Computed example of a mutant assay.
Amino acid sequence: MKMTSIKMKRLLEERLHHPQWNTSFNRDKDIFRVEWKDSRQGISITIPNVIAKYEQRGEEAIEDLEYHIKEALHVMNQSHELTGQEKNIFPVIRATSFPTKTKAGKELVYTDHTAETRIYYALDLGKTYKLIDNEMLEKENWTVERIREVGTFNVRSLSTNLKQDKVAENDFYFMASKDGYDASRILNESLLEEMKANSKGELAIAVPHQDVLVFADVQNESGYDILAQMTMKFFAEGRVPITSLPFLYEDKKLEPIFILAKNKPTNNNSKKDD
């Protein structure tokens, strides 16, 4: 029997029943929300997206969603300190379309990265993490520069084990450690410089979603097509999608590129005057 929005709403209500939580459903927008009764902090879920995952993965998709929602709600209801937790602060890469404020109106801490991406900062709590907001910084007299330095230092300490694959004479390297910070490793300059030094052709890098980092040593034109298809596939499958555009890495800079079928990429900046 086909899963409908109403059936999914009822299923989520059963799974997320809690005496201190409220649930609501916006029929017009097909959005289900669960929030704390006292603070009104919570999470909104787009029902059609959940149904699509349910049809692909069945009960496992619902269990995964339930777990992440409960973890996120519990994190929202706790107070956290940065001092003494420096080793647990990490940068996370997000799309530039990602909100700069929480649902409760708190300004999130972020720094610029590329035309497609932005760097936010997270306090790792073990099973999940909390994005750091300006209120947390002000409370402890931290600066954005300090949080950036701490996060950048910590990302260098993460493992850099890569899996390699060769397709049509092009070398592809994949990072998928599932620690929540795979895309964040694009901020490890020593790793990028090492990959550049060892590349035979042009080095392209992709962060299609939070849990994968792709390096491509592009040695012929078909390599660009393969990278474009690969990046789009990962982007569509990611739990936290970032960007479907890869980057060329040259002179320690990342330039977003459009990859046209059977053609060499064009720089994203060239499109600005269209």
Results as ranks from 00 to 15, higher is better:
Gly180His: 10
Ala183Cys: 13
Pro241Tyr: 13
Asp28Phe: 12
Thr152Asn: 06
Ser222Met: 12
Asp112Leu: 12
Asp171Thr: 11
Arg57Ser: 08
Ile226Met: 05
Ser184Val: 05
Glu116Phe: 04
Leu192Gly: 04
Lys130Arg: 13
Asn77Ser: 15
Tyr173Arg: 13
Tyr173Lys: 07
Asp112Glu: 12
Gln78Val: 09
Glu202Met: 09
Lys178Trp: 01
Ala95Glu: 05
Val207Asn: 00
Met175Ala: 07
Leu245Lys: 14
Tyr249Trp: 01
Ile51Thr: 08
Ala236Glu: 14
His80Gly: 03
Phe32Glu: 00
Arg40Pro: 00
Asp30Phe: 07
Arg185Met: 06
Asp182Ile: 06
Ala95Phe: 01
Pro91Tyr: 09
Val150Ser: 00
Tyr249Thr: 00
Lys37Ile: 08
Lys253Asn: 04
Glu135Thr: 13
Leu187Phe: 04
Ser44Met: 09
Ile69Gln: 03
Lys127Ile: 09
Pro48Leu: 14
Ile43Asp: 00
Thr102Met: 03
Asp30Lys: 12
Pro241Asp: 12
Arg40Phe: 08
Asp251Met: 03
Pro48Thr: 14
Lys178Glu: 11
Pro256Ala: 05
Asp28Glu: 10
Glu140Pro: 01
Ile242His: 00
Ile242Met: 01
Glu202Gly: 07
Lys29Glu: 06
Arg185Asn: 08
Tyr110Asn: 10
Asn170Thr: 09
Ser199Trp: 12
Glu255Pro: 00
Gly42Gln: 06
Phe258Met: 04
Glu14Val: 11
Asp124Thr: 02
His18Ser: 10
Met8Asp: 08
Asn154Pro: 04
Pro19Arg: 08
Ile47Glu: 01
Leu248Glu: 07
Asp30His: 11
Val109Pro: 00
Ala95Cys: 09
Thr117Gln: 00
Val50Cys: 02
Ser157Gln: 14
Asp124Val: 07
Phe25Thr: 06
Leu16Asp: 03
Ile242Lys: 02
His68Cys: 02
Arg185Cys: 07
Val218His: 02
Asp179Gln: 01
Thr102Gln: 07
Glu86Asp: 08
Gln229Leu: 12
His17Met: 06
Leu108Ile: 05
Glu66Arg: 02
Ala197Arg: 13
Lys233Gln: 15
Pro208Trp: 08
Lys271Leu: 15
Leu125Gly: 01
Arg15Asp: 03
Leu108Met: 14
Lys37Met: 06
Met8Tyr: 05
Asp133Asn: 15
Pro241Ile: 13
Glu237Ala: 15
Ile69Ser: 00
Asn267Gln: 13
Ile119Phe: 14
Phe25His: 06
Ile51Gln: 02
Val218Leu: 10
Thr102Pro: 02
Glu138Ala: 11
Ser177Pro: 04
Arg94Lys: 12
Glu86Ser: 04
Arg185Thr: 05
Arg40His: 11
Lys200Glu: 14
Met8Phe: 09
Glu107Gly: 03
Phe215Pro: 00
Glu237Trp: 13
Glu169Asn: 10
Asn269Val: 15
